[in-house]
C-alpha cells in the first residue's frame, strides 16, 4: 500500500511540476501531446492520474507527520483544476466552458470536503478562526479580508461593466434545423426521405452498408481499405463517384475546407468563424446526407431564421454545381473522413 501511495505521490509531484512549467511558460503545453482522436479520454485519464497522485501525496505527507490541512487540500485542488484547464488543454478552452467546469469542480470539492461532519469541521476551522479572530494574526487577516473582499467585488463589477471593444459573445446555432424539403435546380427534395443516387452497390442500388465498407478507416492515419482506392482507373460505381466527388472538392471546396477536410484551407483564416471541420465528429457525422445536400446547395445565404447570426460565407453551390456534382462531392466528404451519414432506421 505504502509503495503504491509513494508511486502516486511521485506522479502527483511530477504532474504538479509539469503543470507549473506550463503555467510559467517554461514547458510548452504540448510537451505531453494530446493525440488527435484520443484527446477526450486522454484528458479524463490525465485528471484521474492527478487525483490519484494527490491522494498519494496527501498520504505521504501525513505519514511524514506533515498532513496538509483539509482547507488547503480543497482550495488547492480547485485551483489546480482551473489552472489545468487554462494552461494544459490546447487549443484554449472558451471562458464560458471553463466557467462551467470551474463551477462543477467547486461543487465537487464542496461535496468532498463536507461529505462527513469531521471533514467539514476541519475545512471550516481556518475560516472560523479568522472570523473569531482570537489571535493577532487572525485579527489582521480579518481586517485584510474586510478591505480586500469589497475591492475584489468592486473590481469584478467594474470589469464586467466597463465597455469593451471586443466583439460580443455570439450564441451561434451551428446546425439549424433544416426545412422539410428543398428545391434545387427546379426539383423538390424531401430531406427526410431523399437519398444520394451515387451511394450504390455494384448492382446500382442504394446501399449504405456497401459504401460504409469502402470508406477510409477511422482513427489515426485514416488509411484506405484494401481494394478500395478510388483512384484506381478500373473502378466503377461507388468508388468512381467518390473520385469524381474528390475532383469537384479539390476544384471548389478545398480552398476553404482544407486538403484534409479539417476546415483549415488556404483562405480559412480569412473568415470568422473558419469553415466547418468535417473530420470533427460534431459536423457531418451527426447529420443526414440530405442535410449536407441542403446546406451545400443553399450556402450561407440560405440559412433559415434559426441559423442566427447567419455567420457563414459559403456560396450557394447550386449556382455553380449541378445536382449530381453536389451529391458526388458529399459522397467524397464522407468517404475521406471515414464517417457515415446519419440514418434513422
Amino acid at each position: 500500500m505504502k509503495a503504491l501511495m509513494s508511486l502516486g505521490a511521485l506522479v502527483g509531484v511530477l504532474g504538479l511540476l509539469l503543470l507549473g512549467g506550463m503555467i510559467f511558460d517554461v514547458v510548452p503545453s504540448n510537451t505531453v501531446r494530446l493525440v488527435e482522436g484520443y484527446m477526450p479520454m486522454q484528458m479524463l485519464i490525465e485528471v484521474g492520474c492527478y487525483v490519484a497522485g494527490f491522494a498519494g501525496l496527501s498520504y505521504m505527507l501525513s505519514a511524514m507527520g506533515m498532513p496538509m490541512p483539509r482547507f488547503w487540500q480543497g482550495i488547492g485542488f480547485w485551483l489546480f483544476f482551473m489552472l489545468y484547464l487554462k494552461f494544459r488543454v490546447y487549443p484554449p478552452i472558451p471562458f464560458s466552458v471553463r466557467a462551467m467546469y470551474g463551477t462543477v469542480s467547486m461543487v465537487a470539492v464542496f461535496m468532498w470536503i463536507s461529505a462527513s461532519e469531521e471533514d467539514w469541521k476541519k475545512f471550516k476551522q481556518p475560516i472560523m478562526n479568522v472570523l473569531d479572530a482570537q489571535t493577532g494574526m487572525n485579527k489582521m487577516m480579518r481586517y485584510l479580508y474586510l478591505v480586500l473582499i469589497p475591492i475584489l467585488v468592486g473590481g469584478f463589477s467594474y470589469n464586467a461593466m466597463v465597455p469593451k471593444s471586443e466583439e460580443p459573445v455570439e450564441l451561434r446555432t451551428v446546425h439549424p434545423a433544416p426545412p422539410a424539403s428543398t428545391k434545387v435546380h427546379g426539383k423538390t427534395y424531401v430531406l427526410q426521405t431523399s437519398q444520394s443516387p451515387y451511394r450504390v452497390n455494384p448492382e446500382g442500388k442504394y446501399d449504405q452498408e456497401y459504401s460504409n465498407a469502402n470508406i477510409v478507416e477511422q482513427g489515426m492515419g485514416r488509411l484506405m481499405k484494401p481494394n478500395a482506392n478510388p483512384w484506381d482507373d478500373k473502378n466503377q460505381g461507388y468508388l468512381k463517384y467518390v473520385k469524381e466527388g474528390g475532383e469537384i472538392f479539390f476544384q471548389n471546396c478545398h480552398f476553404c475546407h482544407g486538403d484534409n477536410l479539417n476546415g483549415r484551407g488556404l483562405h480559412a483564416f480569412a473568415f470568422n468563424p473558419i469553415p466547418a471541420n468535417f473530420t470533427d465528429p460534431g459536423t457531418i457525422a451527426q447529420l443526414q446526407e440530405t442535410f449536407i445536400f441542403w446546406r451545400v446547395s443553399k450556402g450561407g445565404i440560405g440559412l433559415p431564421n434559426e441559423g442566427f447570426p447567419w455567420a457563414s460565407v459559403m456560396p450557394p453551390w447550386e449556382q455553380h454545381l449541378t445536382v449530381d456534382e453536389i451529391w458526388k462531392v458529399i459522397l467524397f466528404e464522407y468517404w475521406h473522413t471515414g464517417y457515415y451519414p446519419r440514418t434513422w432506421d
Binding site: P40, M43, L44, P94, V104, V169, L171, D280, G282
Partner: peptide, 29 residues
C-alpha cells in the same frame, strides 16, 4: 462535466479564432 459540455460553445470571436474553429478538438467530443 461531460454531460453538460455544449456542442455549440458560447465564445467571443477572439476565442473562436484562438480555438481555430467552431469545434474544440478535445471538448467538442
Amino acid at each position: 462535466m461531460v454531460f453538460i459540455t455544449p456542442h455549440t460553445m458560447v465564445m467571443t470571436p477572439a476565442e473562436l479564432k484562438a480555438m481555430g474553429g467552431q469545434q474544440h478538438p478535445v471538448l467538442g467530443n
